[in-house]
Amino acid sequence: MARLGFLTIYWRDMLRFVRFKTVLVSSLVQPALWLAFFGIAMAANFDRLAGSVPTIPGVPVVSYLTYMAAGVIAMTTLFTSLFGGIVLLFDKNWGLMREIMASPLPRNDVIFGIALSGMTKSFIQAGIIMVFGIFIGAEFFLGYSAGQTFISLLGILLFLGIFSLGFLFLSAAISISLESPEGLQGIITLLTMPIFFASNALYPVNAFPPLLQIISGINPLTHLVNGIRFFAIGDDFQSIGIHYTATTGEIALSLCVLAIFAAIMFALAYWRFQKAVVT
């Protein structure tokens, strides 16, 4: 029989996710609100400023709302994934982790189970933002055939999946090593700031100072946003006066960066879990 122990952990986490309607609804509504308020407000400003910049002839123009909707999907995935491991910390503090640690279930299955449920939550949120974004005017999949849209969606899910796994592994590793949820919160806040703002999620990185450009270049969030824009908007467009092109090779490279990041984070989580003693 195939060993599918991680599905047990997955099952329990999803059970609790759908059981609590307030948590469920707020986690789904919150990213939509981000897009609605921040997106529309910023789009109005950026589009007005961009109006004074001459457009490059022959290149499709994309509204700021469309541009940043991809960023909001990425940002939501980042937050959800970084907090995805916190359930392990609560389980540890409430003593529930002991049942799992004293069972024959391999510890890798705990990591995979939690990562898989976190990934599922991210997919649901991303789906909601996309639908809501298109509803308020984000021009995703413009001019795509049904087949192209389907393939693009798969591409987006692939990028989101690998990205969220990386940060979920990191979150699991931190959670199993810490004693208090406050500590985790502190670390996550410390991490999200640079990751979020030193990326191309909300604005172009072209005007960044060189150091910030380097950080942005190795930032997984930047590579996720590259992937989402490539699949949702296209490989050749302009927004807020900047011309974006992407080759398949560049996108493949972005995917590789995410995969390497996820692999390193898994190694970290594996190490922390092997060392973990829960009594």
């Binding site: 029989m1 060993r3 122990g5 599905l7 047990t8 099952w11 329990r12 059970l15 609790r16 059981r19 609590f20 409430w94 003593g95 529930l96 002991r98 049942e99 799992i100 069972s103 024959p104 279930l105």
Partner: peptide, 25 residues
């Protein structure tokens, strides 16, 4: 059976046992 209660408050009695059975394949 641990000294402190180690039951997930948010699961039913059946689910607690179901989860445990699954943990042990």
């Amino acid at each position: 059976v641990f000294q402190e209660v180690t039951l997930d408050r948010d699961m039913t009695c059946r689910e607690i046992l179901e989860f445990h059975g699954r943990l042990y394949s």
